[in-house]
Design a protein around this nucleic acid. Structure first.
Lengths: 345, 345
DNA sequence: TAGCTGGTCGCAAACGTTTTCGTAAAAAAA
DNA sequence: TTTTTTTACGAAAACGTTTGCGACCAGCTA
């Protein structure tokens, strides 16, 4: 199977011009007469000439593609972010190559190596739950690969970051539960090494403290694999439920954790919100039709993707080394629904 | 910003060998002595030499990447298919470039053109709801680009197809509703031009006919945009609800249609399943925690992605033109939950 | 007339590989 | 020893572009 395309050489031969003349004409060089340009452009259009992007990449040393590493595509938050990435990338004529780490450190390393060897011009990444060490990214960054982080970021690499205001989001979610009268509020969160985990945890603690409550370590459960292993979440929830002073509400820190927790509560026949209220970070488009409808802390996922990509492309196309880096912080939104109501609506 | 990598030339210079010797040594050619090979391999490993894939692509005329066009990534069915695609592609060392048509014919054309100009070695596609004409794909296929269809297929191009047994799936879903005692069963489906729409419609009709009921055209609603425009689904549902002999059950034909319909029923304060039962084609991982939990016809999405990719790669790597094409039909699975129960569980 | 200037265009190198072919030296056969 | 074969390597072309530079010609100036 061969896919034969017309090349610049064919155009040159047909028009009895040199290859370089054709090339310059196509790029509108001033060295070429208007008449010749017209001929070339016309012939190219008629015969549907498209420059071979691979040859261009080789020549220019840029591939016009960006790599993306997310933990999982099968998740509304990330798929929405990717929608944002794609929209900006397409508009600026970049390709997007998406890979999934599945929350695995190994796969994150493999993916980043693979992407860089595929000559992406830049990398967008949200760290995996297992990742504690970012040396693999530091190496790439030191070699000159532009990187922008979103969501799960690290300060060990000097570059742009795009995040939600996680602390505030968690604070508001917790505050809402407090206002509803819940007092023993637990927190199921992701790997403790993640930036989002730390920030959300702080917001959670701060809300409790501000309300005169003391955060209880037994009420805080970490899922090192970010909920990719269901058993992990089950374990965390079971421990909470078995506590002598069982919590009356839970704040979950991620999309997958939220849906898994709700699902497990169903299985355990624990009534939500009567026996256990729930507020979760989630961008699930179905949160409204959950049973009960789920009070959600929503991140502006689309915007995050767009902003991240915009920053990355600026980095890629910068003429001189960039030394000033931004940390963009976007606001979350709390949508109150049944799962956090003191009395069912 | 430049990303400097070590090239074969650097290796040659360092070892005082010619470029061709190094190249052959790296590929384990028999015409290079064991000693030289050892040296080259060692040096390459130590200095982390990676062949430049762009140069290789240019030389070989293959890019080791495959393009994917789906209507939407933000959807469990497609994201699971993509998981399948990715797993096989990665294993065979292919890159995957994912694009979304958003159910738009225009975008499908633009994406296919873009992907082919980006020199993908093959294309995986599930047609958009708006697509009635596949000339753009025929052109690419005629030029020699291997294509494999999944889910929403067309017979106008002679190539492999991977689909679910849509007719049987719809038949079983409808039959289940009938067995539960529902008699006025409506069907909300996608664009009538889609293969899946036709097949599911047939299954639905056959189940009714086999039960001695006559399919009623007023009970069948098409959404030309596949539910991407919420208003479209609302319109369809409203018309059904306003019928003098209002249906007592609905079979929805796609992931998005199912969740949207359930959501709209909530908004309309129509009790499910008491006033309106619901069975839907969906791969949503949250169907179990919907309110009520949603009876689902599940497609083996992961397998579909894997099979599709396997077939495509075989096509790409075929030494001689392939003339025998397969239509792989995978079985669906019906998961009965509350939304289709005559009496709530 | 001789020298300059602009305007057009082509030559050739370069990007990093792979691969065909040629060739020197070493080994084997005569 | 001479001839043939084998072994091990290098030169160069090719993939499709882009681009610096030189060549050529017309028209102009002095």
């Amino acid at each position: 199977m061969k896919f034969e395309a017309i090349t610049i050489k064919d155009v040159a031969k047909a028009l009895k011009l040199s290859i370089s003349t054709v090339s310059k004409a196509l790029r509108g060089s001033h060295e070429i007469s208007e008449e010749t340009k017209r001929q070339v452009l016309e012939y190219a259009r008629e015969h549907n000439y498209k420059p071979n992007p691979i040859a261009q990449s080789l020549k220019r040393g840029r591939s016009k593609s960006i790599g993306v590493i997310v933990c999982n595509i099968d998740n509304n938050f990330f798929s929405q972010v990717i929608n944002g990435i794609e929209s900006v990338a397409r508009q600026k004529d970049y390709n997007v190559i998406i890979t999934q780490s599945q929350e695995s450190y190994e796969r994150e390393i493999a993916n980043s190596a693979h992407l860089s060897s595929r000559s992406v011009d830049g990398l967008i990444i949200s760290l995996s739950a297992e990742t504690k060490n970012v040396d693999h990214l530091i190496q790439l960054h030191d070699k000159g690969l532009p990187i922008v982080f979103f969501d799960r970021v690290t300060d060990r690499i000097a570059t742009h970051q795009v995040v939600a205001d996680n602390q505030k989001g968690a604070y508001e979610g917790t505050l809402h539960l407090l206002k509803q009268g819940f007092r023993r509020i637990a927190h199921i969160t992701s790997s403790s090494s993640l930036s989002i985990t730390q920030e959300r945890l702080e917001g959670y603690k701060k809300a409790l403290t501000d309300a005169g409550l003391k955060p209880d370590a037994r009420h805080i459960k970490f899922c090192q694999h970010g909920g990719m292993i269901p058993e992990e979440t089950r374990q965390a929830l079971t421990e909470l439920v078995d506590l002598s002073d069982r919590p009356d509400a839970i704040l979950t820190a991620s999309d997958r954790l939220s849906t898994t927790t709700l699902s497990l509560l169903h299985q355990m026949k624990i009534k939500v919100p009567q026996e256990m209220a729930l507020v979760g970070f989630t961008n699930s488009i179905s949160a409204e039709i959950f049973s009960p409808s789920l009070t959600a802390i929503i991140q502006p996922a689309l915007e995050m993707g767009q902003l991240t990509t915009d920053l990355l492309i600026r980095l890629i196309e910068a003429r001189r080394p960039v030394t000033q880096f931004q940390k963009q912080v976007l606001q979350t939104q709390l949508i109150v629904r049944e799962s956090s109501m003191r009395r069912t609506l």
